[in-house]
Design a binder for these strands. Structure first.
Lengths: 224, 224
DNA sequence: CGGAAGATTTAACACTGGTTAACACTGCAT
DNA sequence: ATGCAGTGTTAACCAGTGTTAAATCTTCCG
């Protein structure tokens, strides 16, 4: 599933067409037909992205967008707007919209915009550090941090450490690591891995509670 | 001065009235009376917005609008039309119009629309900027901005940075970049790319959270 | 206890990538 | 034309990365 989408569109038939089209592309879509329902569903469904028609009964798109922004100031909101309503665009941005699509629009256009917004918010979310004993590790940046003292790891070192951390306190099979990090499971790669284990042990030596233990003939286990 | 307006209106007296009215509101207006002249003036005057009468001698508004769109695909174009036929509106949008105003119209109406479009194009202009860590990057203008301090990049630098940003946090294959930016994938282009990566790293060095990570033998990844 | 296999560690090595500077080419102004 | 500034390429040298080799240590089991 590529993402959860809340679609608020009061023209039922149009809404269903959009929903089906997005469904078939691997999105999970909740379709509501008025603004009031949109807020309710937003709370229970926690969508990754919101697509709002501006003109809807009970609550219009702007009103909905303002309320959603109070619940979640990050979720991307795309407005659907009639072609010649230029003032809408201005009002929309002021009410927290991220993007506008003018009706009529092609499904391709909508999907492109949805994907780009999902990617952006995913990126913002993925900025994360993992704690491991006294250390913090950032896989994306390949940085190992001990009380503010940063060490930059190489790519392969990061890959290996990342796997160990992801399955900490579990035994990792030698061939599992080899296939994942080296892509092959042969004699030389295995020797290479031994060298990398040594390197990582050195990096982690300042916390005596962290250990990479060898299970003879099987593999390794990172214990914390 | 609130903005430069190119006004093409063949009824001289009406044109002058509009011009004076806009002048007095703080706009800078060039008034031309035929389509041919409109294109000429467009090139030299670089208006922020274009107001076109549809019915004009030599070249009609649609023709002018099409030519302007080839020169500048962003400048807002407002049509003035005596007709109220749906087909004209459709033709107009297909030829790149942003808005229509039916004659007769009040000056207030025209001014409101002009202001809206100027605000929208300002918004659109601002959307050309992509945020990347502490920086903002404008690909079209090849400008990298750090807290108002602007650096102008060269064309190739921009191309490369743009690709890295577009696929931030993803690994870009060396040959993918080479084909896209250099058009070839040979030894010398590859070395050249290495030099450019160094240059871009220097440009981005003031945000320690931004990194261009090398994946040995594979390619690069811009992480934020 | 002794030997074999596996694991660890260090170092040498090959190769890729990083950095700097010289160079060639282009467009521009004098 | 001549010189100048900017852009991108080539070259040379250096640093970083991962692989291979070899020496040593550990564990297991007869």
């Amino acid at each position: 599933m590529k993402g959860k989408i809340l679609l608020a569109e009061d023209e039922i038939s149009l809404g269903e067409i959009i929903k089906e089209s997005l469904d078939s592309r691997g999105f999970l879509v909740e379709h509501v037909a008025c603004g009031k329902k949109a807020i309710e569903v937003f709370k229970s469904f926690s969508p990754d992205i919101v697509v709002l028609d501006i003109m809807m009964p009970h609550k219009d798109g702007f009103e909905v967008s303002r309320e959603i922004r109070m619940l979640d100031r990050n979720v991307p909101i795309i407005f659907l707007t009639a072609k010649n309503r230029t003032q809408d665009v201005i009002d929309g941005f002021e009410n927290g919209a991220n993007d506008f699509i003018k009706k009529p629009f092609s499904m391709e256009e909508l999907i492109v915009r949805i994907n780009s917004h999902l990617r952006i918010s995913k990126i913002n979310f993925e900025q994360q550090w993992v704690s491991i004993g006294k250390y913090k590790f950032n896989f994306e940046h390949q940085i190992l941090d001990l009380h503010g003292k940063e060490t930059t790891l190489t790519y392969k070192e990061s890959l290996l450490l990342n796997e160990l951390i992801k399955k900490r306190n579990q035994v990792l099979d030698r061939s599992y690591i080899l296939n994942l990090v080296w892509g092959t499971d042969d004699f030389f790669s295995a020797r290479s891995m031994d060298v990398f284990i040594t390197k990582i042990r050195k990096y982690l030596k300042d916390d005596p509670l962290i250990k990479i233990v060898n299970i003879r003939g099987i593999g390794y286990k990172l214990v914390v």
